[in-house]
Amino acid sequence: MIRRVAWAGATVLSAFVLLFPLTASAQSSENPDDGKPWSMADRYWGEEAMAEAREEVMAANGDLNTYMVMFDRLEWQDTGGDGTLLWDFQGWYGGDIDKLFIKSEGEVSLEDDEIEDAEVQALWSRAVAPFWDVQAGLRYDLEPKGRTHAVLGLQGLAPYWFEVDAAAFLSTDGDLSARIEAEYELRFSQRLVLQPRIEANLSARDIPELGIGSGLTGIEPGVRLQYEIRRTFAPYIGVEWQKQFGDTADFTRASDEDSDKIVGVVGLRTWF
């Protein structure tokens, strides 16, 4: 089990590292030589010296790339027996408008000692409105293994401070699915934060081999109470309702599992 988790981690990391230089070069914009925005100091200090300094000062004041690594949820879920480990990761690198996003989610059953679900996405993210980014790219499923999906999504901040991440997935097998996540931060104090969160999954048709039925396959509303030891480091406890619908619920019940359960969670939200 440990080996497989490590492998999943390595895949995420290597995808991130491989795509790093790609975006880095995509971000650096060059000023055409013919269109110097200003040049009066060239006369005093030379064209070459000023050209270099001008490029530097312009890049240093507005064209800066940043990265972020965030585990929105890194948690243990009390799903019976030894429970389940879950990760929900987002990382990005880029400028104000264009970014490379890497997202990964997955679950490891400690009871069965196996990865139940794991996926990684590599997305180009473009700011299109004050609070919204359009994201497009690929998703690869590590478990169940082998599926690749095209991804088109929208991520941002809805009115009244709801964080939204919605994406549609089209697999190489022609299956269309979608996932919508929404989060909210309700502060009791500057440190104690209640985070309601809901995730909904949809599928265009039945995919029996994955145990998925058409329509709304399931929802996972939950609340997590975080304590921000630092703004970047917040352990939490919470509870989540994992509810499946329709054929998906039937598939789950057929394999002798619970399609409707409430689980307690303990975890950590952290970013840097």
């Binding site: 200003w38 009066m40 100091a41 005093y44 200090w45 030379g46 010296a49 000023m50 270099e52 300094a53 001008r54 490029e55 530097e56 000062v57 312009m58």
Partner: peptide, 14 residues
């Protein structure tokens, strides 16, 4: 004089 103003990339090379 502007070339003594001390702003790299604008008034002198730094």
């Amino acid at each position: 004089p502007f070339h003594m103003d001390g702003v790299p990339g604008v008034s002198f090379p730094g």
